[in-house]
Amino acid sequence: MTVGYTLNIIAFILNVIAWVSIGLISFHIYKKKASKLKIWKVIVVLFIGIFSFNINWSMFDTVVMLPILPLGVWILYFVFKQKEGRWERYRLYAWLGFGANVVFIATTLLAVPLQSAFYPEREATTYLSNLEYASLIPIHPSATEQKINKVALENQLPNMTVEMIYIQDWYEETYMEMESNERNERFPYQLTGVTSKWGSGKKPVTYIESDGKGLLIKTVEKDVYFRAAKSFLEEVK
């Protein structure tokens, strides 16, 4: 288990880029308009303009927030229309704020290929790095006295292959072939003291298979099952 805050560096950088570009575009327009509006008022209007009703639309394994209703623009309209000419002066910036949502959608979509380029989902090294303090927690009585062979794990980590999670087979193996109170757990150890690759923003929980060759890695998005050629557990002498 990874304790503590893990930074999603790609999302972070893209977010900074998004805000900076929104700022630059707005400032450029503000300058060009050469209006006498106070800059802080324009900034407030921009921020309120961003506020919108979104629907979540998932594609490419990410959730994209599509702005449907420009709530912020409406609020500004109702507040500003009370005084003659005020809404007309600010309208542009209110809509600019709403338009900023497009920039956020762009960064969300851009994050997908970047994320998989730097932190590929199907590589075990994305989830496990820094094995120095790695240790095992037995979570089930079918666990035997084993300890982790850090060298064997580290060497095999880049070459592990992603396998299907055959829940159907596992289910049958566990429930059909064993008496209810003699069941073994397929993953009787939890791996602790490891962190995911720096900047991946992942907080995985990792279980180790009883034969010492499999890793079940659970993240918020999905479970990934890795297999190695040789066992990376060893008997405690």
Binding site: P138, I139, H140, P141, M164, I165, Y166, I167, W170, R183, E185, R186, F187, P188, Y207, L216, K218, K222, D223
Partner: peptide, 12 residues
């Protein structure tokens, strides 16, 4: 469409 599995925890 993705299968998931929660191992049994039984600690004493």
């Amino acid at each position: 469409g993705a299968e998931y599995y929660f191992p049994k925890v039984q600690m004493k």
